[in-house]
């Protein structure tokens, strides 16, 4: 058997040129600017309770996930890989991390309640 370790990956058609790279850059920059501005101003109206935390925190998390999507799908090119590969990488993350977060945060809140009794 010959050594295949230096064979390149099969070519996947992505967008041509470099315009798409700068487009993703401006999106990431704009989202970060919005996050920082909201973090400094902390608008009173967004501090109301929502899904167990403040509405502002929910907005931060949604914006963070949007940034993560652009980095992974475009910069890391995962969005242009084969479907089976996309799911092999994302499915464990999508299942395990929310589960771990839910379990640990619930437990942490409960530990706090016990400690303050």
């Amino acid at each position: 058997m010959s050594d295949h370790s230096n064979n390149p990956s099969e070519h996947h058609d992505g967008p041509e040129g470099t315009a798409w790279i700068w487009k993703v850059f401006w999106i990431l920059l704009a989202v970060t600017t919005v996050e920082v501005a909201l973090g400094i101003i902390k608008p009173e109206i967004l501090l109301s309770q929502f899904l167990g935390t403040s509405l502002l925190n929910v907005i931060f998390i949604v914006l963070t996930l949007a940034k993560a999507y652009y980095i992974v799908a475009e910069f890391m090119h995962l969005g242009h890989e084969r479907k089976n590969f996309i799911w092999t990488i994302t499915l464990p993350i999508v299942i395990l991390i929310p589960y771990l977060t839910f379990v640990l945060l619930t437990e942490g809140g409960y530990m706090g309640v016990l400690m303050n009794q």
């Binding site: 058997m1 010959s2 295949h4 370790s5 064979n7 390149p8 990956s9 099969e10 996947h12 995962l78 890989e81 084969r82 089976n84 590969f85 092999t88 990488i89």
Partner: peptide
Amino acid sequence: GGRQPFGASYGKMMMW
């Protein structure tokens, strides 16, 4: 050998 079930080379797949 020499096939890429994920369409990605060994090194790239392992990095992922």
